[in-house]
C-alpha cells in the first residue's frame, strides 16, 4: 500500500513536467509574452525600456529551454514570486483562497453525489414508475440548461426577490455557511441531471448481469439484490465517473465564486487571466492539477477497496 502510494507519487513527476510543458507552450511560445508585458504595464509607463526591464526580470529574454527549466523550478518549489496586481506573494494568495474553495466545493460535491445516487437507485428499482419517468424528464431538463442561467435565476429569485438567502457575501469561519447554502443548492441542481442519468443507466446495466439472475435463483428479494449485489458492483463504474467529474468542480466553483463573491481560487484565477497576472495564473493551474492528480490517487485506492479484482501492486 505505502509502496504503491510512493510509486504513484513518483509517477507524478513526468506529469508535472508535461503540465509545465503545456504552460510553456501556451504562455512562453505561442506568444503570450509580448502581450503579457504590454498589458502588465499601465499605459503611461509602457516605454520600451520598461518593457525590456520586465522582460529580463521575468527571464523572457533567455533561451526557451532555460525558460522551461525556470518554470519547472517555480512549480517544484512553488515559488512563483509576487503577484503583479495584488502586490502579494503568490503563495500567500493561494493559501488564503484555497480553503474557501474547498468549503464551497467539497460539501456540495458530496451532497450532490449522495442525493443523485439515492434518486437513481430509486429510479432503477422502480423502473417505469412515475418517479422514474419524472426523474428522467428532470435529467434531460437539467442537462439542457447552462449553469450560468441556473445561477442567475437562482440568485435573482431565491436570494434577491424572495430573500431566502443572502445575495452574496463572505465572512471568515463557520459563519460563512450562511452564504454557502444557496451556492450548494445551485451546485446540486446543475449536476444532478447528468448524475442521475448516468447512475440509473449503470445500475440498470448491472441489473441485467448474470450474477443478478443467480441471486434471484437463490430466492433473494429484489431489495436485497439491489443493495447487496447491484449497488456494490455498480460502485466500480460510478467511482470512475465521479473522478471524471472532478474537473467540472472547477467550472462550477469558478462561476459560483464569482456570483456569490466567495474569495476562492476560481475567482482568483479569473481575475488573474483578465489582468494578465501570470504568476498567479500559473500557481492556480498548478493547484488545480495537483488537486486533480491527488484525487486520482485516492480513487485508485478506493477502487482496490471496492473491487477485489484490483490489486495495488
Amino acid at each position: 500500500m505505502i509502496n504503491y502510494i510512493i510509486r504513484r507519487l513518483l509517477n507524478l513527476i513526468p506529469i508535472i513536467l508535461g503540465v509545465a510543458m503545456v504552460f510553456f507552450l501556451i504562455f512562453n511560445v505561442i506568444g503570450g509574452q509580448e502581450k503579457y508585458l504590454y498589458n502588465l504595464l499601465p499605459a503611461k509607463s509602457r516605454t520600451a525600456e520598461q518593457i525590456d526591464f520586465y522582460r529580463s526580470k521575468y527571464g523572457l529574454d533567455r533561451p526557451f529551454f532555460v525558460q522551461y527549466f525556470d518554470l519547472v523550478k517555480q512549480m517544484v518549489t512553488f515559488d512563483f514570486g509576487k503577484s503583479e496586481t495584488r502586490k502579494l506573494p503568490v503563495s500567500t494568495l493561494i493559501k488564503r483562497h484555497v480553503p474557501n474553495s474547498a468549503k464551497l466545493t467539497f460539501p456540495a460535491f458530496f451532497f450532490e453525489i449522495v442525493i443523485s445516487l439515492t434518486l437513481a437507485s430509486l429510479a432503477a428499482y422502480y423502473r417505469g414508475s412515475w418517479l422514474d419517468r419524472s426523474l428522467t424528464v428532470i435529467s434531460v431538463i437539467g442537462m439542457s440548461i447552462p449553469m450560468l442561467v441556473l445561477i442567475m435565476l437562482g440568485q435573482q429569485f431565491l436570494a434577491y426577490r424572495l430573500g431566502l438567502f443572502p445575495i452574496s457575501g463572505w465572512v471568515r469561519g463557520i459563519g460563512a455557511v450562511r452564504y454557502l447554502v444557496l451556492p450548494w443548492i445551485l451546485w446540486c441542481l446543475v449536476s444532478i441531471g447528468y448524475d442521475i442519468r448516468f447512475f440509473r443507466t449503470t445500475l440498470l446495466e448491472e441489473a441485467h448481469k448474470d450474477y443478478v439472475r443467480t441471486a434471484k435463483a437463490k430466492g433473494l428479494g429484489s431489495r436485497t439484490i439491489m443493495v447487496r449485489h447491484i449497488l456494490r458492483n455498480g460502485m466500480i463504474p460510478i467511482l470512475t465517473y465521479v473522478v471524471m467529474e472532478i474537473p467540472f468542480l472547477l467550472t462550477g466553483a469558478l462561476l459560483l465564486e464569482r456570483f456569490f463573491s466567495i474569495p476562492g481560487i476560481g475567482d482568483l484565477m479569473v481575475n488573474s487571466i483578465a489582468s494578465y497576472d501570470y504568476p498567479v495564473l500559473k500557481a492556480t493551474i498548478l493547484v488545480y492539477t495537483l488537486f486533480f492528480v491527488g484525487f486520482m490517487l485516492i480513487t485508485d485506492i478506493l477502487y482496490a477497496l471496492v473491487d477485489p479484482r484490483v490489486r495495488l501492486s
Binding site: K209, Y211, R213, T214, A217, R232, I236, V306, P308, R309
Partner: peptide, 16 residues
Amino acid sequence: ISMIFQEPMTALNPVM
C-alpha cells in the same frame, strides 16, 4: 428448487 448456470465466470458476484 435450485439452479446451476452455464457461465460460471459471470454467474457469481465478482465482488463477494
